[in-house]
Nucleic acid binder design. Structure first.
Lengths: 151, 151
DNA sequence: ATCTAATAGTTTGATATGGAATAATAGGCG
DNA sequence: CGCCTATTATTCCATATCAAACTATTAGAT
C-alpha cells in the first residue's frame, strides 16, 4: 500500500482517541439498550422528547431540537409520531403564532414518569465500570471537548 | 412537577456524564464537518468504508460492518452507492461463495488517498483544544468505557 | 452422505438524520 | 404604516440506521 500520509505521535493519538470516543458511545448505548429500559411503543428519540418536556414543561420545537441535539426538520417527524400516539399535543402559542408549544398529554406524562427511572438506571449501570474519580475526570475533559469554540 | 425520581450524587453525576459524552461527540463531529474535509460526492459512512479498505485491503462486508460500527443490512446500502459511484467493486470470494470481498477501484483508491489527509487534519484540529495529558487520560478512560463487558 | 446449526449478505419496513427550500409570522426601522 | 430581515415550523429528499425475515452457502455432527 502506498504511503500517502505520515503522522506524528500526537496525530496518531488523536485519531485513535476519536475512534475510542465513538466506540465508547456506541458501546455504552448498546449496554443501555440491552437492558430494554423502554416500553415497546417508545423509541429513544421519542423518549428524549418526552423527557425534555417532563423536566422543562411545554417547549417550542426549536428548543427541544437543541436540547436533544436534533434538527427541527427531523423533530417534526418524531413529534408527529408522538402526537399520533397521543403522548403529546401541539398547542399554538398565543403571542407568537409561528410557535407551537409541545405539551405532554396526561398519558404521555404518566408514561415518561414510569419510564424515566428505568432509563436512568440503565444509564447508571452502563457506566458503572468507572470509578467515581474516573467519572469526575472524564466529566471535566468532555466538558472541554463539548464546548463550542471557533474551530 | 411531581417528583418521581430521587437520585444520589453519583447517579446525578453519571447521568450528567452521559449527556456530556453524547454532546462532546456531536460537538466534535460538528467541528469536523465545519471544515468540509470531504469532497461533494462522499458521505461520512462512505468515507469510513473507503478508509477501512484503504488501510486493510479488500474486506468482506461483515468485517467492514464491524470496523465502522454499522449493521450489515445498512452496509449493503452504503456499498451499493459506492458501487454505483464506481469507487468499489464486489468481488466474489473463491473459497467461500457466501462472501463478497469489497475492493477499491482505481478511482476509489485515488479518491480516498486524496481525501484521508483532509479528514485526519479536521479530526486533529477538532480535538486540538485538549492538552497531550488530557488526550492520554481521556484515551485511558474511554478505553474502559468502550470495552464490552457483561452489562 | 445427510442433516443441522451457523454465517454472509440482501431485502424490507420503520425510524432517524441533516440540508435545502418553503411558508407564515414577528419585529425592527425608516 | 409598509418594507426588510430573522425566526419558527413544515416539507421534501437523500442517506443512515437497526431489526427481522429471508436466501444461499458453509461447516460440523452423526
Amino acid at each position: 500500500m502506498k504511503r500517502v500520509w505520515e503522522s506524528t505521535e500526537r496525530e496518531k493519538k488523536v485519531l485513535d482517541l476519536y475512534i475510542k470516543l465513538r466506540r465508547s458511545v456506541s458501546s455504552v448505548e448498546r449496554r443501555i439498550a440491552s437492558k430494554n429500559p423502554l416500553p415497546e411503543r417508545l423509541t429513544m428519540s421519542q423518549f428524549a422528547v418526552l423527557e425534555a418536556l417532563f423536566f422543562h414543561g411545554p417547549l417550542p420545537q426549536h428548543v427541544i431540537a437543541e436540547k436533544i441535539l436534533s434538527s427541527t426538520g427531523n423533530l417534526t417527524f418524531v413529534i408527529d409520531n408522538l402526537v399520533k400516539a397521543g403522548l403529546v399535543k401541539r398547542v399554538p402559542d398565543e403571542r407568537d403564532r409561528r410557535i407551537k408549544n409541545i405539551q405532554l398529554t396526561q398519558e404521555g406524562s404518566e408514561l415518561i414518569a414510569k419510564t424515566f427511572p428505568n432509563v436512568a438506571d440503565a444509564i447508571v449501570t452502563s457506566i458503572s465500570v468507572l470509578t467515581d474519580q474516573e467519572i469526575d475526570e472524564l466529566s471535566r475533559i468532555l466538558k472541554i471537548l463539548g464546548t463550542e469554540q471557533r474551530n
